[in-house]
Computed example of a mutant assay.
Amino acid sequence: MEFRDLKKQYYTHKRDIDQAIESVLLNTDFIMGDAVKKLETALAEYVGKKHCITCGNGTDALQLALMTWEIGKGDAVFVPDFTFFSSGEVVSLCGATPVFVDISKDTFNIDPDDLESAIEKCISEGELKPRVIVAVDLFGQPADYDRIRRIADKYNLYVLEDGAQGFGGRIGDKAACSFGDIATTSFFPAKPLGCYGDGGAVFTDNDAWAELLRSLRVHGKGTDKYDNIRIGMNSRLDTIQAAVLNVKLKFLEEEIEACNRVAAQYTAGLKNIVETPVITEGMRSSWAQYTILLKSSEERELVMGKLKEAGIPSAVYYKKPMHKQAAFNNKCQGKNCLKTEEISQTCLSLPMHAYLEEDEVSNINCIIRKVLYDIQL
């Protein structure tokens, strides 16, 4: 069994994907070719934003956003403590200071109450200037943007939506990657919309920011690539990856619907014996992961072991809170994130993709129930 079955996805759509790749090979427009322009238009329409600027990967997308806002030394950027390293890494790369904030236990996303407390603490200490909130749409569900936006407006902060895992999620009729002042996503292969290598995108309605982003991703270019008017980076999306994404975008909604059926089956079989994911009313998750909470790290190891014996993969996102990463020693603030520390010891992600069969999910549920029943005995 695959944790995220990209092989079955490929074989299901092999003809269309192969034709799209072959078209790029025949046209030999490997860098910033027609497929890239087509993809940017399609993604902007899907998300509901005026501009989509593709780039080399999701990490670059985040850094490009911070560079656009000229975030740097002396600035505080508020980041959830429970997320992938890049969400905070880019803050340090820009010379600013990440301030890590605890999460809500039910959604795994940034806790608005703890966020506001961290902002007020930063203001009262006076050492850093609050500038940006990085709101991560973790495991597929958008963050609480209603409250985040009110807090951002109150303290005059930018909202950077990290939609690397959330692409395809929704709040009402609005799509993920439409909630931040700037939003970003990743097309890493295992993401809800993934390519066959690295890729990323930035979304905004702001014309001036969009123009700056397009310059920054190509060495700070001006009128052409040999007219360099600012320091930028080399972060262009390969045309082959764009061609693959153009095909995959067409069946993304179908896959998200299937993932929601898989998630419902997991929840029905496990809700009385473990803590299952909570989807806030009015929201849709794109299910980048299906993550349960067990009672202890020892219980988690037993469940993982039994699943492995049955040939079933599982994963832990994330074993170490951001503030405990050695790279951030003496380079961050916000180290009292008790919910993050608890969840990092008890969370477990199960196989999740659109091609899981009902009997496969039933088998996973049965194994987990049996392990926990035997523990109780």
Rank of each mutant, 00 (worst) to 15 (best):
P189N: 04
M304P: 03
L348K: 01
G140T: 11
L293F: 13
A310Y: 07
L64K: 03
L62P: 10
M352F: 08
I119L: 03
Q325E: 15
G194N: 04
A327L: 14
N336D: 15
N228G: 05
D181M: 05
S92V: 14
E357P: 00
H219N: 14
R300D: 03
S362Y: 00
S296H: 05
C177V: 08
Y373P: 00
K37A: 12
Y290I: 01
Y155R: 08
V244F: 03
N336G: 02
L157R: 06
L193P: 08
N336C: 10
K248R: 15
W209N: 11
F78T: 04
F100D: 11
S314T: 12
T185F: 01
I31D: 08
S86V: 04
A201Q: 04
D81E: 12
D29Y: 05
D144A: 10
C195S: 15
G88V: 11
K154G: 01
D153L: 13
E360Q: 14
H13V: 01
H219D: 13
L270V: 02
D34T: 13
A263F: 10
S362R: 05
K319A: 14
N365M: 00
I53H: 02
A326T: 07
Y317G: 00
D198R: 10
F188W: 14
P142K: 02
I256R: 12
T184V: 14
A326H: 02
G169C: 07
K225I: 01
G140S: 11
N330F: 14
A327C: 10
E125H: 09
E45W: 00
T280E: 10
K319S: 13
Q376H: 10
L157D: 07
H13E: 09
